[in-house]
């Protein structure tokens, strides 16, 4: 997961400044939205289902994002889809790491942020949870999230650890799922971040869940340039690569399916501040989740990270193609 690493001091400092801006803007936006609420031309909200809703439900929501490209892209998708439905949106992108934005969404200074259900659960909500599958993780989130927060529907798109091989290896050995590695693992060297050797979903998990024992293990980096080079160079034959790493496209790699959830689910899921929601907003976000696949997200990540495409036009093109705007 791209989000696993905690922010460094520098990032935290920048994020603190960004948060000050969030706080400042949200106070001004709540005043503007309260005036909007009293005006007959207030932007539509198809229902007033939540009597507790104050500013948010009447029009303006704050969409935040963490400080890495994929999360900003997802936030951009949410923003454009909501705007197309007439919701007033204040973007607060590139806020920082979860440690920084999570307390803010709890307070409602951010209303919506794209999250990853697995790490949201184990990092921010319940570190003791052992839930692995999408359903189990979402159920645990529903039970344990603070009362002001909820998660909407998960997308099928995930950004999780994986076992990834080259297209050539996959074609030669007919590999589709991690289970297919059984006859080949003994002759393969696995590459991953150093802690993969001891992590419970690392080598131990692959052995327990799929009965795989690899010939060797090379400690590399976290799905970064070293791991990708080792895989394409043939130094390792399989590696832990995050499922939306854009080089999966450019380096011609294949992510093997993980039917037994050795790696816990990391579905993209909107984390929302409940009092700011109304049914238009939740329907819009759920419609996005219904269409968002890992393949689509991977393509968009590749566009913005490798080809330096513009975030908003990349997001807009996908929304249009899926009929969401």
């Amino acid at each position: 997961m791209l989000t696993r690493r905690a922010a460094t001091g520098g990032i935290a400092a920048v994020a603190a400044v960004a948060l000050a801006a969030v706080a400042a803007c949200s106070s001004s936006s709540s005043s503007s939205s309260s005036s909007a609420a009293s005006s007959p031309s207030a932007s539509s909200s198809s229902s007033s289902s939540n009597p507790l809703s104050q500013g948010g439900a009447s029009g303006t929501v704050v969409v935040g994002s963490a400080n890495f490209p994929e999360n900003e892209l997802l936030a951009e998708i949410y923003i454009q889809a909501l705007q197309a439905k007439g919701i007033k949106v204040t973007p607060k992108l590139n806020i920082g790491s979860r440690e920084v934005y999570y307390p803010q969404i709890q307070k409602g200074t951010i209303s919506i942020i794209p999250e990853y259900n697995g790490t949201l659960l184990t990092v921010a909500v319940d570190p003791t949870s052992t839930a692995k599958t999408t359903t189990a993780v979402d159920a645990a989130l529903a039970a344990k999230l603070p009362s002001t927060l909820e998660v909407l529907n998960p997308a099928s798109a995930t950004d999780s650890d994986s076992v990834t091989v080259t297209q050539a290896t996959a074609a030669k050995d007919h590999l589709k799922s991690i289970a297919d590695l059984k006859p080949y693992a003994a002759s393969m060297v696995f590459g991953g971040p150093p802690e993969f050797k001891t992590r419970s979903d690392g080598l131990a998990g692959l052995k327990a869940n799929y009965g795989l024992t690899f010939k060797g293990f090379d400690p590399l980096d976290e799905s970064g340039p070293i791991t990708l080079a080792a895989l394409t160079d043939g130094k390792v034959q399989a590696a832990d690569v995050f499922t939306t790493t854009p080089q999966i496209i450019s380096d011609k790699l294949v992510t093997l399916a993980d039917p037994k959830f050795n790696f816990s689910a990391q579905n993209i899921i909107p984390l929302v501040y409940k009092p700011a929601m109304n049914s238009t907003i939740t329907d819009t976000l759920n419609a996005i989740s219904a269409k968002l696949t890992t393949a689509a997200l991977l393509q968009m990540d590749a566009a913005v990270i490798l080809q330096h495409a513009n975030y908003s036009s990349t997001a807009g093109a996908w929304l249009k193609a899926e009929g969401l705007t």
């Binding site: 971040p193 150093p194 802690e195 050797k197 001891t198 992590r199 400690p219």
Partner: peptide, 8 residues
């Protein structure tokens, strides 16, 4: 030792 220790 340093890299592995940091990672874990």
């Amino acid at each position: 030792f340093i890299f592995d220790g940091l990672a874990s």
